[in-house]
Amino acid sequence: MKREKCPFCGYEFTAEEAASGCRGCSLSSSCGHTCCPKCGYELALRPWQPPWRRRGRRGGTRPGIGVPESTSMRPLTSLPVGGTGVIAQIGSNEAGVLQKLASLGLFPGRQVKVVQKFPAYVLQIGHILVAIDKDLAAHLEVDIDKGPALDYKNKETKMGGG
């Protein structure tokens, strides 16, 4: 997690901490500023850029970059269309996120196939198709080498984690 340092009082804080201070402000998602949670000093996170410039920057963080080649674990969003993997990790403990994923049967150990990535992620789990948006898909990490642990074709294996 990236830490910001307040130039006014010197307090160091994470983006999450700062977001608590911005809640309720209607422009918080788009102003490009944050407020120090300690003294309230407003600092610019990045110079303001028109939207068409921002897109160019976002393209730089292509999914998959930064994942070491040797491991078979990677974010689901980095799989190509048609790629399969077994859900290894859900990178969130937020009850809302977990409940949504659970309601679609997206548990660790289940094998998923990426059917489509735009406009939303379409995943095949067993015999059903589910659609989730990019924000939810970003929480999922998959293992592309492992066989399914939670599938009725091979029942010996037990689920991992809990």
Binding site: N93, A95, L98, Q99, A102, G105, F107, P108, G109, R110, L150, D151, Y152, K153, N154, K155, K158, M159, G162
Partner: peptide
């Protein structure tokens, strides 16, 4: 005792149980 919310843990156990059951009969 758990990192994850309990309703997720319970749902996961149920999912495993149904998968096991289905493996025997489907």
């Amino acid at each position: 005792g758990y990192q994850r919310p309990l309703n997720f843990v319970i749902a996961q156990w149920r999912q495993q149980a149904t998968a096991d059951l289905a493996a025997d009969v489907v």
